Computed example of a mutant assay.
Amino acid sequence: MSETVTRTSVMPPAGPMPARAGVGLKARHYATIVGEHPDVGFFEVHAENYMGAGGPPHAWLAAMRERYPLSVHGVGMNIGGEGALDTAHLARLRGVVERYEPALVSEHLAWSGHGGAYFNDLLPLPYTGETLARVIDHVDQVQCTLGRRVLIENPSTYVCFGGDEMDEVTFLSELARHSGCGLLLDVNNVAVSATNHDHDPAAYIDAFPTGPVDEIHLAGHALGHDDTGAPFAIDSHDRRVADTVWALYERTLLRSGPVPTLIEWDGDVPEWPVLLDEARRADTRLTDAPREATS
Rank of each mutant, 00 (worst) to 15 (best):
T170W: 01
P12D: 14
R291L: 13
E44M: 03
A194W: 00
R291I: 10
V10G: 08
G211E: 15
G76A: 14
A84C: 09
D39F: 04
H199S: 09
P258K: 10
D206G: 09
L185N: 03
W272R: 03
C160L: 14
Y30R: 12
M51Q: 12
H197G: 05
P12W: 15
D227M: 08
A230K: 12
L122G: 00
L262W: 01
S106G: 04
G81V: 08
A53C: 04
H114I: 11
W246G: 04
W111H: 06
L132F: 06
Y249G: 02
A233I: 13
Q143M: 15
A194M: 07
A242S: 13
I234G: 00
P273C: 10
K26N: 05
L70F: 10
W265H: 04
L276N: 01
G211Y: 04
L276H: 08
C144A: 14
G81S: 14
G35L: 05
W246K: 08
G81K: 02
D167G: 15
M11D: 14
D283N: 15
D140R: 15
H108N: 03
A222Q: 05
L25H: 04
A222F: 04
T157S: 13
V105C: 04
I79E: 03
H178D: 12
Y100I: 09
R28P: 00
L184V: 02
D164C: 10
V23S: 02
H178I: 00
L175P: 00
D243H: 07
V159S: 06
R281W: 05
A293Q: 11
L184W: 02
L254C: 11
S106F: 05
P201E: 12
M51S: 03
L275F: 03
A133N: 11
S256W: 04
V190P: 00
E271A: 13
L183S: 06
V72C: 06
T87I: 13
Y127E: 10
V213A: 08
M1V: 11
A31N: 09
E66T: 13
G74K: 00
P12F: 15
A103M: 11
L90W: 07
A176N: 01
V135H: 07
A247M: 11
D39T: 10
K26G: 05
V97N: 01
T6K: 12
D164K: 04
W265I: 07
E130H: 15
A27C: 11
D186Q: 07
N120I: 06
H178F: 07
E250Q: 11
G162A: 14
Q143F: 07
A47Y: 01
L70C: 09
M64E: 02
E130W: 09
Y249E: 01
T287L: 15
E36I: 04
S193C: 04
G147L: 06
D266Q: 05
P270V: 09
V213E: 06
E82M: 09
G41K: 08
H138F: 05
S71V: 15
T261P: 00
D238P: 06
A279S: 14
N49E: 09
F171P: 00
A202G: 07
R239T: 10
P12I: 15
A230L: 14
R134S: 08
S256Y: 01
G41D: 07
D226V: 14
S295P: 01
